[in-house]
């Protein structure tokens, strides 16, 4: 990863060819940049990385990060050092649905470990792995602010709370049937099960 980020401009340009925001995404990016005073556009980096992750397959490749750097006219390393700091950015390919199961205190007190084990068994993967069909990646997360409705998991923008095994079944079935990539930027949070 590091070697690619530090790569030459020529290399970056050639690899970047396929990475470009469509018109709608570009409008959002421009709006995000306009949220800050003249010359302070670097502040838009984290919000733009969220858009980029959603647009380019749910993760941030070196090429995607270089592209974002070119938009903000900052060095690629400035993007990489940020992308690698925050836990919501994936620096490796992930499944279409990333399941973040909270494991901190209140969720643990309410059975989060059992939820993780249940999903591991159901999907036949371990934490950190992706199912063979590329549909699900299972992750554990630290406190997601859902302690009163524990146990919980997040997938994209949706909070799935007060989880039971049955609830996990229906959520995963629904996601599988829909088959689409779920992003933190998705708006359909009200459709949570």
């Amino acid at each position: 990863m590091g070697a690619q980020v530090h790569g030459t401009q020529e290399y970056n340009k050639s690899k970047r060819a396929g990475i470009k925001f469509n018109e709608d995404a570009m409008k959002i990016v421009q709006k995000l940049i306009s949220n800050y005073p003249e010359g302070k556009h670097k502040s838009a980096l984290i919000p733009i990385l969220h858009v980029a992750q959603a647009e380019f397959g749910g993760w941030l490749s070196a090429e995607t990060m270089d592209y974002v750097a070119s938009i903000l006219k900052i060095q690629p390393i400035e993007v990489f050092e940020v992308a690698s700091f925050y836990s919501m950015f994936n620096l490796k390919p992930v499944g279409k649905c990333v399941l973040d199961v909270c494991q901190t205190s209140s969720c643990w007190l309410s059975g989060a470990e059992d939820i993780v084990k249940y999903i591991e068994k159901k999907l036949n993967i371990k934490v950190g792995e992706t199912t063979k069909d590329g549909m699900f990646t299972l992750k554990v997360a630290e406190c997601l602010g859902s302690c009163g409705t524990a146990p919980m998991m997040q997938c994209g923008a949706s909070f799935h709370e007060k989880l039971t095994y049955d609830k996990v079944d229906s959520i995963l079935d629904k996601y599988k049937a829909e088959g689409k990539q779920r992003n933190y930027t998705d708006l359909d949070y009200k459709n949570t099960l």
Binding site: I46, H50, Y86, M88, D100, A141, L144, G145, Q154, A157, S158, F159, Y184, T185, L187, Y189
Partner: peptide, 10 residues
């Protein structure tokens, strides 16, 4: 706002 609260940001 924390990123996980994306829907709250909306």
């Amino acid at each position: 706002i924390r990123g996980e609260y994306f829907y709250v940001a909306r």
